[in-house]
């Protein structure tokens, strides 16, 4: 997967992962892919709901050593 931008939101607490993701998304073009890394346990539900509501697509996500990584394509 070709990632256009990586956002490191590790260590940040609610609501910052979503706020930062939104900001990063603003700078991307439709179709580009953002990788978001976070350690917030609520992030999986949060980012999944957020991408759905805002018209983006969650392509993939994974968890490794309590770091959650998400790949979101801008809609």
């Amino acid at each position: 997967m070709k990632v256009d931008q990586v956002l490191d939101a590790k260590g940040l607490a609610c609501p910052m992962p979503i706020v930062k993701t939104k900001k990063a998304m603003n700078n991307l073009e439709a179709g580009q892919i953002l990788e978001v890394q976070t350690t917030d346990k609520g992030a999986k539900s949060d980012l999944t709901a957020w991408t759905k509501s805002t018209g983006h697509t969650m392509l993939d996500s994974k968890e490794e050593d309590s770091v959650y990584t998400f790949y979101i394509q801008k809609g």
Partner: peptide
């Protein structure tokens, strides 16, 4: 304010 910031991120 957390809800407000979240909602702003929801556009």
């Amino acid at each position: 304010y957390i809800i407000a910031n979240g909602a702003a991120a929801y556009d």
